[in-house]
């Protein structure tokens, strides 16, 4: 009897406990959905490809990769693809592919009504935003960290191979205070800025896919808005620092202030969240 009583005590009894357990289960299922989706792995592969792409110009990269990555220092091999690679070009894809299309998929498959019946509008919206953020940030960080880990192992941190000309440029830029510990703070700062930009585009992706109720169309529109806004902002000298390229991938000599860039990215994040909420709200009212 006592054992039975103990078991009963461990079970959630109060309504609030039941709610928490249900919420935890939903979070677990949603996380499982993200990590089982092919989109996540495609996004990580794309991010890695984007980093490696500028190295593919040279035949040495293919025939003697270790010798190639040993020919300059770690910081150079991070900053070069950051500026000349495809990371910021493919970032909207990397952001949307893992989990930003879930709401549109639910609507298309006819699961939306069941999901809303079980969790309610607000919780469903929160879950979609959470999962889009988790998927996009994870994909961006995983791709970047895999590349950083590779160059950390393959490229020298110090010694004769350090490119002094690059270090001189950094010393005169906004990144000068972060130039210590072989450049790790600069690399990590840049990696997190890419992750934040991915979070912004995932929010835009959630909004557009929910609005169009079509994952593919939402993906294409996110890509189009990313490219068009970048082109428009780059044309105007007063707004150039607001373009995505200037925020995450411009030559570090031209960065005006790291704090200003962080604030700009956070403003974009708020715009992204608003887009996602509007898109999801329209999806709910249309059903």
């Amino acid at each position: 009897m006592e054992v039975y009583g103990d078991q009963l005590c461990q079970c959630p009894q109060r309504p609030s406990d039941l709610k928490t357990a249900e919420q935890e289960r939903k979070n677990y299922l949603q996380t499982k959905r993200i990590f089982l989706s092919r989109g996540l792995y495609i996004a990580v592969t794309l991010q890695l490809f984007a980093y490696f792409y500028p190295h593919m110009d040279t035949s040495m990269f293919f025939y003697e990769p270790l010798k190639y990555f040993g020919s300059a220092d770690f910081l150079y091999f991070y900053l070069m693809p950051r500026e000349l690679g495809l990371v910021h070009v493919l970032l909207p894809l990397v952001a949307v592919l893992p989990s930003a299309t879930f709401a549109a998929e639910d609507a298309h498959m006819g699961f939306l009504n069941y999901q809303l019946y079980r969790s309610g509008e607000k919780k469903y919206m929160r879950l979609q935003i959470q999962s889009a953020l988790l998927g996009s940030v994870f994909a961006s960080l995983a791709g970047s960290m895999l590349y950083v880990a590779f160059i950390a192992l393959a490229s020298p941190m110090s010694g004769d191979h350090v490119l002094e000309s690059w270090r001189q440029i950094i010393k005169q830029s906004a990144y000068a205070p972060l130039l210590y510990a072989n450049g790790w703070p600069i690399v990590l700062d840049s990696v997190f800025r890419f992750a934040l930009a991915a979070a912004v585009w995932s929010m835009v992706g959630v909004g557009l896919t929910a609005l169009t109720q079509n994952a593919g169309l939402g993906l294409v529109l996110t890509l189009a808005i990313a490219y068009q806004s970048n082109a428009v902002l780059q044309m105007n000298p007063a707004l150039i620092y607001w373009s995505q390229r200037s925020l995450v991938a411009i030559n570090i000599a031209y960065i005006d202030s790291l704090w200003a860039n962080t604030i700009r990215q956070l403003i974009y994040f708020l715009i992204g969240i608003t887009t996602a909420l509007i898109g999801l709200k329209i999806l709910m009212t249309r059903r």
């Binding site: 495609i42 894809l93 593919g216 993906l219 890509l223």
Partner: peptide
Amino acid sequence: GEVSIGLIAFV
């Protein structure tokens, strides 16, 4: 059977 693969093949 995936839009994302088609889109990557396009881009």
